[in-house]
Nucleic acid binder design. Structure first.
Lengths: 330, 330
DNA sequence: CTGAAAGCGCTTACAG
DNA sequence: CTGAAAGCGCTTACAG
C-alpha cells in the first residue's frame, strides 16, 4: 500500500496553508477562513488529482465531532444476522432507523475474544448495547462518563450511576393482560414463573402483576417451576383454568397437558403470556405483539437525540396486547 | 458528557511518563519500554479507578495499525438486512467469516446522501464493496493507492489500475452447463440473453460460452430479447428445444410458453440457466448453486490476507452446477 | 531500566 | 482576507 495522500500534500502543491486547504476540502469556508474562488477551485482540483481522501480518524481526534456512526455492541458471541435469532428484530429496527437518520453502523461483536473491542465504541457517536450484560471495565467507565450508551432493556450498574435504556413499558401491558384474563376467570388466576428466567423483565412483570391484582382485589396464586411441569403446577392450573404464563416456553410446556385433558384453550381454559411473541406461533394465547423492531428504532432515536443534544429521557415503548381466543370467548 | 479520561490523566496520577503508561495499558511492555511490576500494577489500578478508555482513533492515527475492522460499503440505498434481499447472502457470509477472523464490521451505507461516507472506509483495515459501482472520487483514489478494497464481482476502473475482486469462476461452470445441455440436444442450442442485463458477468458468460462451443464444435444460436419474449425467440426455442437462458428471469418468461405447448421440461425441452439460483424456486432447470454466502466469506479472507500481508491474488469461487431434470433425463 | 520529544493528520482559535 | 501555531490522544524511536 503506497503512502496515503494527506492534507499537507494538497496544501503544498496548491501553495496554500494547510488551514486553507482544510477549510476548502471540508466545506467550512467562511467561518474564520476565507479563500478566493480561484484558489478554492485549484485546491479542489489538486486534491482530486492527487487522490486526497481525508483521514476520518484525524478529523475526529481534532474536532471531537463524531462520525455519525452508531456502534451496536453485543455481549453475545454470534451477532444476530440470522433472521431467526432472538435479537434480529432489534437489529433490523436499528438498521432501518439509522439509515433514515443518516448514521452508519459499527458492529462490535465477539466481545469475549477481544476485550479491546469495547473501546472501539469511541469511534462512534454512541452505542446501542444488546444482550445480557457482563462486567466490562470500559463499558462501566463509559456509562460513568455519560458517553452516549443506550441499553436495550432495563439496566443498572452497581454504582448506582444512571444507565440509559429503552424498554417495553411492561406495567400497562401487564394490567391489560390481567383485565382480560380476569374477565374470563372464575377462580384465582394461577401465575406461573420459571426459575430459568431471572432477568430483570421477570422481576418487573411479577411486581406489576402483584401490585395490580392487589389493587383490584383479583385473587392470584404463584407457582414456580424450573424447566418442566411439577404436579403442583399441573393440579393448580387444571383446577383454576385461568392462567398467566411468565414466558412463552412455559406456555409451550403446558400445551400437552391441556390436550391430554381435552381442554380447549379459549373455551375450557383461559390464559395469557407475559412475553412478546417474538417467535411467532403462539396465536392461541393472549400475548404481546412482537415490537422488537420498533424498540431497536427507538434506541437509535434516543442516541440521535443525545448526539444532537435534544435530551430525551429513558424511553419506553408500549407493547399492545393481542387479544386472542384464549381470553375473548365466554 | 463529562471530559474523557486520557492517558495523560493516568500517567500524571501514577507519577510516570505517558510512554510508560501507554506501554502498560496496551500490553506492549518489553519492547523498548520496561516498567517494574509494582508500577505496572499501580498504573493498571489507577486506570481502572479513573475509568480510562483508550481513544481508538488516536491509537490508530499514531500507530497506523488498523483496527481489525472491515468496512462493508454498498452503493445501494438500503442495506441488505432483509433476508430476501439479493445481497443478503453476501452479507451473511461476510459477517460469519469476519466473526471467525476477529474483525468487527462497519456498515457504510446510504452513500447517495452523504458522500463523506466513503472516507470513513479509512477507519477500517479494508473494505468490501457491494453493489453496482458508481463514480466516487474517494473510492477511485483508494483503489489507486492500493488501499485494501475488495469488490464483490469483477470490476475495472477507467485508468486501468488493477482492482481487487472476488467473483464466481464462470468459465468452468459455463463449460459444464454446455456439456450437460449438449448431451441432451439434437439441434443447435439457443442462447437467450436480455438487453436488460448489461453487467460484466453477462459479457463474461457470453464470451466463455461462445469460446467453448467453438472449440467443441457445438452449434449455438444467439437470441436477444429485452423484457418480453419475441416471436423469433419463441420459434427458435420451440424448434430447437435446447436452450440456455442467461438469467433466471428469462427462464421465468418462457415457462408459460412451454406450458401452452404441453412441453415438459426435462422430457420435451432441455435447458439451463447461467445464473446462480439465489432466489430459489428454479429447481426444474439446470443451474448454478447459490454460493453467495461463500463468496462473501471469501471477500473477508482476501481482505484479511491483504491486511496480514499474506498477499493473495484476485480470488474466485467455483459455482457447482446443479443437475436437474431439465438435463438429466433422456 | 526510564522519560523527553517528535509526530500521526487534521482543525481551530488567533494574530497579522 | 490569509497563514503560523497549538494541540486532539496517542505510540515509538531514541537518548540517557
Amino acid at each position: 500500500m503506497t503512502k496515503r495522500v494527506t492534507l499537507s500534500d494538497v496544501a503544498k502543491k496548491a501553495g496554500v496553508s494547510r488551514a486553507a486547504a482544510s477549510a476548502v476540502l471540508s466545506g467550512k469556508i467562511g467561518k474564520s477562513i476565507r479563500v478566493s474562488e480561484e484558489k478554492r477551485a485549484e485546491i479542489l482540483s489538486i486534491a482530486k488529482l492527487l487522490g486526497y481522501v481525508p483521514n476520518t480518524a484525524a478529523q475526529y481526534l481534532k474536532s471531537g465531532d463524531n462520525n455519525h456512526i452508531i456502534a451496536v455492541f453485543t455481549y453475545e458471541n454470534a451477532f444476530p444476522f440470522d433472521p431467526n435469532s432472538e435479537y434480529y428484530p432489534f437489529f433490523a429496527g436499528i438498521q432501518a432507523e439509522a439509515e433514515m437518520e443518516g448514521y452508519d453502523i459499527l458492529i462490535l461483536n465477539n466481545w469475549a475474544k477481544d476485550k479491546a473491542r469495547s473501546s472501539r465504541i469511541l469511534l462512534a457517536s454512541g452505542a446501542i448495547m444488546i444482550g445480557v450484560t457482563r462486567d466490562d471495565e470500559h463499558i462501566t467507565s463509559l456509562v460513568r462518563q455519560k458517553f452516549p450508551l443506550v441499553f436495550v432493556g432495563r439496566r443498572h450498574i452497581s454504582s448506582g450511576i444512571p444507565v440509559r435504556y429503552v424498554t417495553f413499558s411492561y406495567e400497562p401491558s401487564v394490567q391489560r393482560i390481567v383485565d382480560l384474563v380476569d374477565g374470563c376467570s372464575a377462580g384465582p388466576i394461577v401465575y406461573i414463573t420459571s426459575t430459568l428466567s431471572n432477568a430483570e423483565p421477570s422481576e418487573d412483570k411479577a411486581l406489576f402483576l402483584h401490585n395490580y391484582c392487589k389493587e383490584r382485589n383479583i385473587p392470584i396464586e404463584d407457582v414456580i417451576i424450573s424447566d418442566s411441569i411439577t404436579s403442583e403446577a399441573r393440579e393448580k392450573v387444571l383446577a383454576s383454568r385461568s392462567v398467566i404464563f411468565d414466558r412463552l416456553f412455559i406456555a409451550d410446556l403446558f400445551a400437552p397437558v391441556f390436550k391430554e385433558n381435552n381442554l380447549i384453550i379459549g373455551e375450557d381454559v383461559f390464559g395469557a403470556i407475559l412475553e412478546d411473541d417474538w417467535t411467532g406461533g403462539h396465536e392461541i394465547w393472549t400475548r404481546w405483539e412482537n415490537r422488537r423492531r420498533e424498540l431497536g428504532a427507538l434506541a437509535v432515536e434516543y442516541l440521535a437525540s443525545l448526539h444532537e443534544g435534544t435530551g430525551l429521557d429513558d424511553s419506553f415503548i408500549d407493547i399492545p396486547v393481542i387479544e386472542s381466543t384464549s381470553t375473548k370467548i365466554r
